[in-house]
């Protein structure tokens, strides 16, 4: 089993190649260089592993939420590759990818809250819980909202992850007592692990049916004339 994962949804560009349980990856911070970097980075992984694209079994990508254009670069690259190779796509939540970075520090069923800076005074947020296989599963709906409107349910998360905590101090007050990691960005490595689970569960989709998840869908207004 060989799986390629791509993420370009935030201010870093990352790719990962997972074969069975071994993962190699690349991660480069870049505000706007994703389009220059992503394919050469994939080529590097192939060169290092000695595999060719034709040997892949599936392609995974960060399907959002994140920067609109960044999310579309990831899905565009993933679609182009998967369509050319006749492979299924595995869309993975960028919030889950961030949550997965905390998995090693969670006990079974413990929760992690992810808050990514969504700009425009809002955050993308979701809560995840650790499952028996060591991977996180969603414990809430993903949403875009003003940080001050975030409501924590009865089971309090133990860890808070994401750039939302850096951008909006109000979240710090709301999440008092939680361990906060404010610099966490989604990475292809965790996307690959989460995608492998979905692949085994038969959740791969045809490339033309994969869709980004923007969460923020009110992007145009009809002018009153």
């Amino acid at each position: 089993m060989k799986l390629l994962a791509i993420d370009t949804a935030t201010e870093q560009c990352s790719v990962a190649l997972l074969q069975d349980s071994e993962c190699i990856d690349r991660c480069i911070p870049t505000p706007r260089g994703h389009t220059d970097l992503v394919l050469p980075m994939i080529q590097e992984l192939l060169d290092e592993s000695g595999y060719s694209l034709k040997q892949l079994d599936a392609v995974a990508f960060g399907r959002g939420p994140g920067a609109f254009t960044g999310v579309r670069i990831a899905i565009g690259v993933a679609q182009g590759l998967a369509y050319a190779l006749g492979l299924k796509l595995l869309p993975v939540s960028n919030l889950a990818a961030v949550a997965q970075q905390a998995a090693g520090r969670l006990k079974l069923a413990e929760r992690v809250l992810v808050c990514m800076d969504a700009r425009m005074a809002e955050i993308y947020s979701g809560t995840f819980a650790l499952a028996v296989d060591g991977l996180v599963i969603p414990a809430s709906e993903e949403q875009v909202l003003a940080p001050e409107n975030l409501v924590l349910k009865e089971t309090l998360p133990r860890i808070g992850m994401g750039t939302g905590f850096r951008a909006y101090p109000v979240l710090r007050d709301l999440c008092e007592g939680m361990v906060i990691e404010e610099n966490a960005l989604p990475r292809a490595r965790e996307i690959a692990y989460l995608a492998l689970r979905d692949y085994k569960a038969g959740l791969g989709v045809a490339p033309e049916l994969a869709l980004p998840v923007y969460l923020r869908d009110q992007v145009a207004h009809v002018k009153a004339s």
């Binding site: 389009t35 394919l39 565009g76 690259v77 679609q79 182009g80 590759l81 369509y83 050319a84």
Partner: peptide, 10 residues
């Protein structure tokens, strides 16, 4: 551009 370039690459 992303779809086209990646498709050609693959």
């Amino acid at each position: 551009a992303a779809v086209a370039r990646s498709y050609a690459f693959a």
